[in-house]
Simulated scan of single mutants.
Amino acid sequence: MHGSATSLTASFSSWLLVLLCAVSGAYCLRWARGAGGAAGEAVMGFGMALMAVPLGGRGDGWRAPVLGVVFCGAALHALWLLRGGPHHAHHLVGSLTMVYMALLAGSGPVHGQEHSQAAGPPLLTGALLLYYAGYVVLGGTRLIAAGDVGSARATADRGGPAELVRACRLAMGMGMLAMLLTM
């Protein structure tokens, strides 16, 4: 009985993560034409949503290679955007993190290996956890600071609230942090 309750809770939280990432991706897609970088964030949001879908081992063989290819393409795109300035470095880190998680998800535990060995290099996972924890804390403080100033200004091109764009980025950062914690 205890195992099924834990499984139900894990499935529910996975579906909440799917919803959070899909809504963030859809919002970014809505503003993709007017805001630089929003298309990359939309791809990241939808990819994170797809990666978080709990399939329970059924039909899971296609997901890791397909997502690996998609996020390698996103990493190449982010690398191309870096020529315009370092503000796209986060997209590169995010894309490479998703490639890393797709590889880990596709490898699974190998017979005879302990779970900690099959989970990937703990130093890299720890460094990514620290990066995203810092990103979430910094993003949260920026969002709070923007709200304190009373910044209800719209984004330059499309009229969307700047706080919602920041909140979208913060939600995806928290989603990435949650996904890394399960690795």
Rank of each mutant, 00 (worst) to 15 (best):
138 L>G: 02
1 M>K: 05
77 H>G: 00
121 P>K: 10
168 C>A: 11
125 T>I: 14
65 P>I: 11
94 G>A: 13
74 A>F: 02
93 V>A: 07
181 L>I: 13
12 F>I: 15
127 A>T: 12
74 A>N: 04
126 G>R: 13
66 V>H: 00
105 A>I: 14
146 A>R: 08
16 L>Q: 09
19 L>S: 12
70 V>Q: 04
24 S>P: 04
176 M>R: 09
13 S>H: 12
115 H>A: 12
113 Q>S: 13
160 G>Q: 03
117 Q>N: 11
33 R>Q: 10
41 E>H: 07
82 L>P: 02
21 C>P: 05
112 G>N: 09
124 L>R: 10
90 H>Y: 00
162 A>H: 10
122 P>D: 14
37 G>L: 02
25 G>R: 00
56 G>H: 06
93 V>I: 14
174 M>K: 09
119 A>F: 13
114 E>G: 14
104 L>C: 11
104 L>A: 10
179 M>C: 12
45 G>T: 07
106 G>W: 05
76 L>V: 14
37 G>S: 07
62 W>G: 00
168 C>D: 00
30 R>D: 00
183 M>N: 12
147 G>P: 01
21 C>Q: 10
163 E>P: 01
54 P>G: 10
157 D>M: 06
13 S>P: 00
43 V>Q: 00
53 V>H: 00
54 P>N: 11
100 Y>V: 11
20 L>F: 07
140 G>D: 12
89 A>L: 15
125 T>P: 07
131 Y>V: 13
173 G>A: 08
37 G>V: 01
71 F>E: 08
74 A>H: 02
171 A>C: 07
157 D>I: 10
153 R>D: 04
2 H>R: 13
171 A>T: 13
167 A>K: 08
87 H>N: 12
4 S>R: 10
73 G>R: 06
110 V>D: 07
151 S>K: 06
170 L>P: 01
140 G>I: 10
118 A>P: 03
9 T>Q: 15
15 W>P: 10
182 T>H: 11
73 G>Q: 05
37 G>Q: 07
56 G>K: 01
138 L>N: 05
33 R>M: 07
94 G>L: 03
138 L>W: 02
116 S>T: 10
27 Y>N: 02
178 A>C: 14
101 M>S: 08
93 V>G: 04
58 R>I: 00
164 L>M: 11
101 M>F: 07
131 Y>C: 15
121 P>D: 14
10 A>N: 15
82 L>Y: 04
73 G>I: 05
143 L>V: 04
94 G>E: 05
14 S>L: 10
87 H>C: 10
143 L>H: 03
36 G>Q: 07
107 S>V: 15
177 L>S: 14
164 L>I: 08
150 G>L: 08
26 A>V: 09
62 W>K: 00
37 G>C: 04
